[in-house]
Design a protein around this nucleic acid. Structure first.
Lengths: 364, 364
DNA sequence: CTGAAAGCGCTTACAG
DNA sequence: CTGAAAGCGCTTACAG
């Protein structure tokens, strides 16, 4: 853990500076170089970097020109030390779906493009008795500029209270609103689930079942309630025997579907809480010798890439995960001093009808 | 971008320290606190932190005890500034498969558990004319402790030369050996592909095709050559018409398979360069009204979770991606001063036989 | 084996 | 609007 080189050479910017980017790779130009070259104090350079209004326009332009000429970028570690806050954006997540995770990462990275912020990953497990402790250690040591919480860890109010105690800015991505509007990216899962219900009702199903996700996920409740609401609009209900609890993973998708298919009066359509479980339903249907959608209609939730790749292509509810990640990161970056954006950011899920749903067979 | 609070309170460790972890969340204990409490200089504390042998055992124990008692953890930003090297491990990748990416991240995070290192993501695109520039900016600004390069960006020798110029430690995950043995995690894709060939030959196929990945990926060549080698062992060859170039994604899996199926003498088995493309082959087969494995056998590569979830479950070649990520991170963490591990780390892919392969139909 | 001084590259708090 | 001094929490280089 000791450094690998000791440079006792001269400082950069001693006169051998040519055009930008051409000097030795190991000698970064510093705030002192810029200050000297611009004939101002380093404090003034600092003000320019931090976009303080307290700089004469003329001075600002001169400094900016030199910064640009020498390709100067302030050292993030030094800034972090002085600011007592790093330039890292943490993503804290416990979502078991790789598709979901990668999409969200992509969105956050989209927003971080061309900034000097970096994305650091902090996966966790809600079941772990030390979750909070580990996250607290992470934020208290790294002092990230802010963190983005994705479901279901985003639904943990106690955790968020602790984050606030560390003065750690956060944005929660969730299907319900917890804090001030700007600190939440809302997904309105209820509405997405309702759309799924309407679709199934409209094509003529009446015996409709639902496999919901882990109960500790608020999204599981939202989707269940939304689904119920959508069915109700069409005069349909969701009897208890048609509600089964899964765990948002493939295996429970299989087992819960099997349970439903073994009922005396099995459903003709099943809405599963996410695509992962819905793919499990495909498996179960196949093992039971059932054809999708002829014998059974299946609807998922998320529209992960997998949904379009299974056979037949799956009808599902699309959540714009990547866009949500980008929006969350942008909100975080916009936190400046005590000013916060005021608007509420919401995303409406939309049903994507493909080929896993069709009118039920005539019941004879 | 200005800090959000100004604390002008007392320093921590002034006497109101109770048991560890109980003090104000916002006052981290520093090296000065520990030095004072242990009645040594902060340099001595620094030596203990950095495991310098130049500390008397008695002194070391005393300091360690106090560090533990107060739950002191050195500030990574301050260390980074003084060391001129941060405690971040960068993952640089251009692999298009989410499954692959998440698995590798998991592996790296496994190895980073209980260390004070963080994982920061740096995706890139080899097609981007600024790839090198962006990566150079990343390493020169963040000065990561080290970076892990996954295929195919790991195959870029010019890039690695540049990294070395920045004194940035790196480990490459690749199917061929580039640098000193310890800087490579080798995957022997050749061997995995050969296993796929042997399997197909053994169950009786003779008209066998291969859809390889993007040509600029060394893995594409490795897998093609390995496959050819495996066929040869069984006296079979791979005619030109049975070799098609895909792009490691779903869509090309579909289109390349369609191309093969339209041949006058279509193959009875297809080995695709990764699972993503193999799922595309499933789609193409279905659209052509072909049954897997009755009418056509399909083999993938990677054994991503998806492989077990499609129907029928897919025969594929398993790459221990997570373990590879963990191994790469461990190698990086073990880089200490000029000492480097000497052993070569390799992983052998293994075929996983499921239900997408069967003896070919009798050709009559 | 141990420590006092100087420094890493920035920002804060205070003057003017 | 601008700057000189002190400091963020560590490590290096040098003494002893």
């Amino acid at each position: 853990m000791t450094p690998r080189s000791k440079n006792s050479d001269n400082l950069a910017g001693q006169g051998d500076l040519t055009t930008s980017g051409e000097r030795s790779k190991l000698h970064k130009v510093t705030i002192n170089d810029i200050a000297r070259l611009a004939s101002v104090s380093k404090k003034t350079v600092s003000r320019v970097i931090n976009e303080s209004p307290l700089v004469r326009e003329e001075t600002r332009d001169k400094v900016k020109a030199i910064i640009k000429e020498y390709g100067y970028i302030p050292d993030p570690q030094a800034r972090a030390l002085a600011f007592r806050r790093s330039f890292l954006i943490g993503m804290i997540y416990d979502n078991p779906s790789p598709q979901y995770v990668v999409n969200m990462q992509r969105g956050i990275l989209d927003a971080l493009q061309d900034t000097n912020f970096q994305l650091v990953l902090h996966p966790c497990e809600r079941g772990d008795p030390q979750v909070h402790e580990k996250i607290e250690r992470f934020v208290s040591q790294q002092r990230p500029f802010g963190v983005i919480l994705s479901p279901s860890i985003s639904e943990d109010d106690a955790l968020c209270a602790k984050l606030a105690g560390y003065e750690c800015a956060y944005v929660r991505i969730a299907s319900v609103e917890f804090d001030a509007p700007h600190q939440n990216i809302r997904t309105y899962d209820t509405e997405g689930a309702a759309e799924a219900a309407r679709h199934l009702a409209e094509i003529g199903h009446t015996r409709i079942a639902h496999v919901h996700g882990i109960k500790s996920f608020r999204s599981a409740h939202e989707r269940l309630e939304g689904f119920r609401k959508g069915l109700k609009e069409h005069g349909l209900s969701l009897p208890k025997k048609y509600i089964v609890e899964g765990a948002y993973n493939f295996d429970t998708g299989v087992s819960c579907t099997q349970k439903l298919l073994q009922l005396k009066e099995p459903p003709t359509a099943i809405f599963l809480g996410n695509d992962e479980m819905a793919v499990g339903a495909y498996q179960a249907a196949r093992k039971a010798g059932l054809k999708i959608p002829d014998d059974i209609s299946i609807v998922g939730f998320d529209d992960t890439p997998m949904a379009a790749r299974v056979w037949p292509p799956m009808t599902t509810v699309r959540l714009p995960i990547r866009e949500m990640g980008a929006a969350a990161a942008k909100v975080l970056l916009s936190f400046d001093g005590d000013e916060r954006p005021k608007e509420r950011i919401t995303f409406l899920p939309q049903i994507v009808i493909r080929e896993s749903t069709a009118a039920p067979k005539r019941l004879d």
